Simulated scan of single mutants.
Amino acid sequence: MRRKSHIQVSYPSNYQDVISAKSLGSGSNHMHARISKLVKRLMESDLDALVTSHLPNVRYLTGFSGSAGIVYISRDFVTFLTDGRYDSQSRRQLKNAGNSDISVFVGNSSEQMNEISRLSAGRERVAIESRNAVWAFALELQELIGPSVQLIPSTDLIEQIRRIKDAEEIEALTSAAHIADEALTATLGLLSSQPTERSFAQLLEAEMARLGSERPSFDTIVGAGPNSALPHAQPTERTIAKGDVVVIDFGATYRGYHSDMTRTFVVGQPTLRQSEIHESVIHAQRKAIESIVAGRRAEEVDAAARNYLADLNLANKFIHSVGHGVGLEIHETPILGSGNRLTLMMGEVVTAEPGLYLEGEFGIRIEDMIHVGSEPGCITQFGYDWIV
């Protein structure tokens, strides 16, 4: 039996009641709450409307999971725009998400642009997401709507709302994490049969798919021996051999939500040096997790792990930030790194993933998904025993 994670999930007392209510139509309540929060932010920012084509934001607001969609959100109505390929799918998904009151416009790109122009008539300030919109889109739209409507570049209006996960999102993230946990449990023993890095990654991804993952959260990382010292190692044809340290960083997706977990294993008995580094990373992660509470600054979480490793003269081997937000995207706000003074908020989900990398020898990283509350709660539940 593998040792479970050292921090257990800690949800609000009514969490199960909220989740159970999902079958009674809470999905519509969640969607309406998200749109209401966004409308409030529009008013606070003196904006009349916002145009988003960033697909994670589109899905967050509407439930649409296709590859082409735009949402036009004003203070008094919401319109979803797509092309003919997604006519039936979008109407079905919006209805299933409780968004039947959102208007659907179907047309080609030129027709969609004309519709956005029509919707903007009489408005003064319309925001376009500056990080996600193509500049040509903004120029074309400005030409259509004329000088009377000012296009305003916006940043993170929706992403800041997405930071706080509602019960439906926590359920999806927990399900994705459970799929990943079970997939690793089912495949881990194969490490001792000397697979290649690439073949093990493929087996792990296939097992996640069998268990219900829609797709891997990202390209699975499997790095063995010296390759484990590469933080984002790409699986190769290198055979995993006895004595190798193996870093496995992977995730599943469920209803569009991503899981993210890293575990490090050793095939056979570890050396004293390997064991010391592994224990150092375990303790550094505990320091980070203990700091993941509402009201704490993101940089303080990073510092908790980094300062612990500095006391061991190992901080120079920790070469990335300690974590990041996770949800509809694998990397979301906030980044838990040095210099980030954003304050953690109740309901966020972030990762804690310190690592130590000894170039040419081996590397060790441990990563879990943490639910931010008055106390931290670990969503990933795979244990920390590492000898295979």
Rank of each mutant, 00 (worst) to 15 (best):
V18P: 00
V149S: 07
V71Y: 02
I7L: 05
G25H: 07
I366Y: 15
L139D: 01
R238M: 08
G25V: 02
G27Y: 10
R3F: 07
A284N: 02
P147E: 14
Q285S: 07
I364R: 08
L342T: 15
R296W: 00
F218W: 08
R163Y: 07
R75D: 11
R92K: 13
Q381I: 06
S110L: 14
T264K: 09
A49P: 03
I102R: 12
E207S: 06
A303M: 04
T62D: 02
P354V: 11
S109L: 13
Y86M: 02
L151I: 10
T380S: 13
R341E: 11
I282T: 06
V246E: 01
G251P: 05
S213C: 08
G27P: 06
R59V: 02
G63V: 05
P226T: 14
T239D: 02
G146Y: 10
P235W: 00
L157Y: 03
I319S: 07
I387D: 03
N57P: 02
L309S: 09
S100E: 15
A233H: 06
T271K: 15
F137R: 10
A209S: 09
S321C: 04
T196R: 04
R85V: 01
G66S: 02
R92W: 05
D311F: 01
A284I: 01
T155V: 09
N316S: 12
D249P: 00
A206W: 00
I277L: 15
S228M: 12
F250A: 09
N108P: 03
T79K: 11
E115M: 15
Q160H: 15
I152R: 07
W386Q: 05
V388K: 06
R215I: 03
L42S: 07
T185A: 11
N307R: 10
H324R: 14
I179E: 04
G360R: 02
S175I: 15
L144Y: 12
A176I: 07
P153H: 08
H32N: 06
I35R: 15
D46H: 15
L184P: 03
S117T: 14
P56M: 08
G69E: 02
